[in-house]
Simulated scan of single mutants.
Amino acid sequence: MTPNFRNSAFTIVSILLCFGLIGCESNFKDVQKMGFAEFSPSGDADGINLKYTDSGRITANLVSPKMLDYATVKYPFTEFPQGIHLTLYDKDGKETYIDAKYAVSHKNTNLIDLQNKVKISNQKGEMLETEQLYYDQKNEWFFTEKKFKFTSPKGVSYGEGIDFSKDFKKVNSQKISGEVQSSE
């Protein structure tokens, strides 16, 4: 073989190999996607207004423009991508209001993850604002490690990290600052 033919054959084989690899790239990406466990909701609801009861008494009222239910996945959850308004009722009929721009309820753990401009308030004029707040449904307990602002008739305080009962009767806060009027 002459050097020109050898160089030409090498060039042609190299070009064909490059085209072959480029052509396989899109197929390879399709094969990779098959390994991902993509899932879609098993339930999809618009404009929901759910009332939860216990022994004939309403304990909560959940209102949301959109609900996606992922009940058939390994770790089932319900997503509220457009936010929620939740009203909790205690045994005496006192109400606690919760608003969030996004929420996820995890079915196995009974935890609700509230995110994006979360506000929780009650009829006594107490209000907590934060960017993320968890609610333990079983123990009726809220908690976060994020920064928060707590407003009450006695004053305003700020902090980072807090946990409390749904009626604000028991509150444990961390790194708190602000001015609060004494009851004395």
Score class of each variant (00 low, 15 high):
66 K>F: 04
155 G>M: 00
7 N>G: 07
9 A>M: 14
16 L>D: 07
118 V>I: 02
174 Q>G: 00
160 E>M: 09
183 S>Y: 09
40 S>N: 11
125 G>S: 06
184 E>G: 15
168 F>T: 05
67 M>S: 10
122 N>E: 05
73 V>R: 04
122 N>V: 03
5 F>Y: 11
179 E>A: 09
35 G>I: 09
164 F>V: 06
2 T>V: 14
127 M>N: 07
84 I>P: 00
43 G>W: 05
41 P>H: 03
120 I>A: 02
93 G>H: 02
132 Q>G: 01
135 Y>F: 15
85 H>R: 10
60 A>L: 07
29 K>F: 13
142 F>K: 05
147 K>H: 11
50 L>D: 13
97 Y>Q: 03
116 N>S: 13
109 T>Q: 08
83 G>Q: 03
182 S>A: 10
135 Y>D: 03
79 E>L: 08
5 F>N: 09
113 D>H: 13
117 K>L: 08
97 Y>L: 04
58 I>R: 14
73 V>I: 13
175 K>Y: 09
11 T>G: 14
5 F>K: 13
2 T>D: 15
131 E>I: 00
151 T>G: 09
133 L>W: 01
138 K>D: 15
37 A>R: 14
106 H>F: 11
152 S>Q: 11
108 N>A: 05
2 T>P: 15
157 S>Q: 09
41 P>F: 03
5 F>S: 06
26 S>M: 12
5 F>G: 04
57 R>M: 14
159 G>N: 02
105 S>G: 06
7 N>I: 02
57 R>D: 07
59 T>E: 11
61 N>W: 15
139 N>A: 12
169 K>T: 09
52 Y>H: 10
184 E>H: 13
76 P>M: 01
118 V>A: 05
109 T>A: 04
21 L>Y: 14
29 K>W: 11
26 S>L: 13
111 L>K: 07
184 E>P: 15
96 T>G: 00
151 T>L: 10
14 S>A: 15
10 F>P: 06
33 K>H: 08
99 D>N: 13
38 E>L: 13
82 Q>W: 06
31 V>G: 09
56 G>P: 02
134 Y>R: 09
141 W>N: 04
148 F>T: 00
114 L>Q: 02
105 S>Y: 08
92 D>S: 11
173 S>Y: 12
125 G>P: 10
154 K>W: 11
85 H>A: 06
118 V>E: 00
51 K>S: 14
67 M>P: 02
163 D>I: 00
156 V>S: 12
111 L>N: 07
90 D>G: 03
177 S>E: 12
59 T>S: 08
48 I>V: 14
125 G>L: 05
180 V>K: 12
177 S>Q: 10
69 D>Y: 05
173 S>R: 02
27 N>L: 14
180 V>S: 12
50 L>K: 15
103 A>K: 01
123 Q>W: 07
157 S>P: 08
91 K>N: 15
20 G>R: 02
136 D>H: 01
